[in-house]
Amino acid sequence: MPSETPQAEVGPTGCPHRSGPHSAKGSLEKGSPEDKEAKEPLWIRPDAPSRCTWQLGRPASESPHHHTAPAKSPKILPDILKKIGDTPMVRINKIGKKFGLKCELLAKCEFFNAGGSVKDRISLRMIEDAERDGTLKPGDTIIEPTSGNTGIGLALAAAVRGYRCIIVMPEKMSSEKVDVLRALGAEIVRTPTNARFDSPESHVGVAWRLKNEIPNSHILDQYRNASNPLAHYDTTADEILQQCDGKLDMLVASVGTGGTITGIARKLKEKCPGCRIIGVDPEGSILAEPEELNQTEQTTYEVEGIGYDFIPTVLDRTVVDKWFKSNDEEAFTFARMLIAQEGLLCGGSAGSTVAVAVKAAQELQEGQRCVVILPDSVRNYMTKFLSDRWMLQKGFLKEEDLTEKKPWWWHLRVQELGLSAPLTVLPTITCGHTIEILREKGFDQAPVVDEAGVILGMVTLGNMLSSLLAGKVQPSDQVGKVIYKQFKQIRLTDTLGRLSHILEMDHFALVV
């Protein structure tokens, strides 16, 4: 994948999101292997301009796509893939009243899908469409860049269908997702969380590099694949309309690839034109409109599966009536509230959605109805927002919020430890010299600072030695090549209790 991002070429006709291997024109390309080798690009942008032909009021008969309808489940399912879809609609009884809503608040519980998330729908649909058009064949390999849930859905379907599955996901995604993927037989590649989507090191860039190296491999490409919004247009939206008897006044959905909100909203605009569509985008993402909503100094966020630093091709923002931004604290607070007060075992993005819903639905009156999409299960986040310690460490809970008995030293300040200034190293000294210094002084790690004293990161003896043994660096290389740029900081005025929580999850903390 090139470091400079080429513009994806656009073909003359058809839909841009065809499933299957992508040609340089962004659509299915038939021909000899030699032709494909000559024409197939190194990668295709996940934010390529959409060429979708959908228009409100256009006859369904003019759609270029294969459409399906929700099917009634048999008493005995032939395999677990038949437990994807037909998820329950559940009334939220307490939270709406707590925040003064007059309307009825309903939750579409997508964590009841077989793999635990709304992404099971698009995973199965992308595979079925690729099999139907002859792209996927027995023994082929599926590769997908994902925040985890699409990966789980694909790995689940691949396990049943017999495909090899490789999932490329950023490091910030939970260990629970990784464990589930491994249990399903998927191979996992992790990428830096802070890598831009168009960087060769991003999950998108690495996935395309693997595709170019592995024979008979395919990126189904949830960011561009029409099967993504079509899955929701054909099934999720129809289920909502049936469950609500066609009567709903507002739908609120958090947005990642945009397939969920695009597919549902398009069908609702056709069948229930008075329904307002509300999009939820986390602070630090750029999906919301108008652009002024996205202006923030924050560039990272903890909530998973929603928000991006690019506009995915499948996201149709014209069908969203209003956007709201959400933050991590309210997302996790509301997710825990949904679990504790409503018994809905949902993930953090569901918290984002409901946090926005109780604001947006203030305009609705008694007798009206708001539906929220709860995308995934708490299963993926047992060591994250479900953990009091994690919430404390991230600053989303305060010590006084917890009532468990603490040891005698818990409320003492870090400054009472009488710490001395640490050994520091410059980023320009060599790895070999740094190892000598650390061994001589008896230290395992040291902060790396520039000549102005600005902290650049941390270097550890173990990481340097393993990097040297693996051949990633040489003793003569500058130590700046092996620094940890993500590390926890703590102030002298913070409590030892807070430091204790940090050290339970990290090997060190830097006192500043």
Results as ranks from 00 to 15, higher is better:
residue 177 K to I: 01
residue 181 L to R: 01
residue 3 S to F: 11
residue 155 A to P: 08
residue 96 G to F: 03
residue 87 T to C: 01
residue 263 G to M: 01
residue 58 R to G: 06
residue 55 Q to P: 01
residue 63 S to Q: 01
residue 234 D to N: 11
residue 199 S to C: 10
residue 59 P to A: 04
residue 146 T to L: 06
residue 225 N to G: 01
residue 209 R to D: 01
residue 249 D to C: 01
residue 76 I to Y: 08
residue 179 D to C: 11
residue 209 R to G: 08
residue 201 E to V: 04
residue 258 G to W: 01
residue 161 R to L: 03
residue 50 S to M: 05
residue 220 L to Q: 04
residue 19 S to Y: 07
residue 64 P to W: 01
residue 124 L to V: 09
residue 42 L to G: 13
residue 65 H to W: 05
residue 21 P to M: 09
residue 126 M to F: 05
residue 222 Q to A: 01
residue 9 E to R: 07
residue 59 P to T: 15
residue 272 C to L: 10
residue 166 I to Y: 06
residue 199 S to G: 03
residue 129 D to A: 15
residue 63 S to C: 11
residue 253 A to P: 01
residue 16 P to N: 06
residue 25 K to R: 08
residue 101 L to I: 01
residue 240 I to P: 01
residue 230 L to P: 13
residue 37 E to W: 15
residue 183 A to M: 07
residue 125 R to S: 15
residue 159 A to V: 13
residue 231 A to M: 08
residue 236 T to D: 03
residue 143 I to Y: 07
residue 114 A to V: 08
residue 42 L to W: 01
residue 47 D to L: 01
residue 46 P to S: 07
residue 152 I to V: 10
residue 212 N to G: 15
residue 258 G to L: 01
residue 221 D to C: 07
residue 243 Q to A: 08
residue 13 T to C: 01
residue 124 L to G: 06
residue 67 H to T: 10
residue 133 D to L: 15
residue 217 S to C: 06
residue 32 S to V: 08
residue 111 F to V: 05
residue 202 S to C: 03
residue 236 T to H: 06
residue 220 L to D: 01
residue 152 I to L: 04
residue 260 T to N: 05
residue 124 L to W: 08
residue 142 I to R: 05
residue 38 A to D: 09
residue 251 L to Q: 11
residue 211 K to S: 05
residue 231 A to S: 05
residue 163 Y to M: 07
residue 233 Y to C: 04
residue 15 C to R: 06
residue 64 P to Y: 01
residue 197 F to S: 08
residue 39 K to D: 12
residue 165 C to G: 12
residue 255 V to A: 06
residue 78 P to G: 15
residue 48 A to V: 10
residue 45 R to A: 10
residue 276 R to D: 03
residue 98 K to L: 06
residue 141 T to K: 15
residue 10 V to Q: 07
residue 136 L to C: 15
residue 241 L to E: 01
residue 225 N to M: 06
residue 251 L to H: 10
residue 136 L to P: 14
residue 242 Q to S: 11
residue 57 G to V: 09
residue 223 Y to S: 01
residue 215 P to W: 07
residue 61 S to A: 10
residue 136 L to Y: 07
residue 93 N to M: 01
residue 37 E to S: 11
residue 226 A to N: 09
residue 25 K to L: 09
residue 31 G to C: 15
residue 96 G to T: 05
residue 136 L to W: 06
residue 126 M to L: 12
residue 214 I to V: 07
residue 114 A to L: 06
residue 253 A to E: 08
residue 263 G to N: 03
residue 215 P to F: 12
residue 112 F to D: 05
residue 150 T to A: 01
residue 66 H to A: 07
residue 59 P to R: 01
residue 169 M to F: 04
residue 191 T to R: 01
residue 97 K to E: 13
residue 91 R to T: 15
residue 242 Q to I: 14
residue 270 E to L: 09
residue 218 H to I: 10
residue 178 V to K: 11
residue 219 I to L: 09
residue 243 Q to M: 06
residue 81 L to E: 15
residue 272 C to N: 01
residue 117 S to V: 05
residue 102 K to S: 01
residue 118 V to I: 06
residue 146 T to P: 05
residue 224 R to A: 10
residue 232 H to Y: 07
residue 210 L to D: 01
residue 254 S to M: 05
residue 123 S to W: 06
residue 68 T to L: 09
residue 10 V to D: 06
residue 261 I to S: 03
residue 125 R to D: 12
residue 212 N to V: 09
residue 39 K to W: 11
residue 200 P to N: 07
residue 179 D to Q: 01
residue 123 S to L: 14
residue 72 K to M: 03
residue 68 T to I: 12
residue 221 D to P: 04
residue 182 R to N: 01
residue 222 Q to F: 01
residue 254 S to T: 08
residue 3 S to D: 01
residue 104 E to N: 08
residue 251 L to A: 09
residue 109 C to I: 05
residue 245 D to W: 01
residue 100 G to S: 05
residue 234 D to S: 09
residue 176 E to M: 04
residue 223 Y to L: 04
residue 94 K to D: 01
residue 75 K to D: 01
residue 272 C to M: 15
residue 179 D to Y: 14
residue 20 G to F: 09
residue 182 R to V: 01
residue 251 L to G: 01
residue 25 K to C: 12
residue 243 Q to L: 11
residue 26 G to S: 15
residue 44 I to W: 01
residue 18 R to P: 05
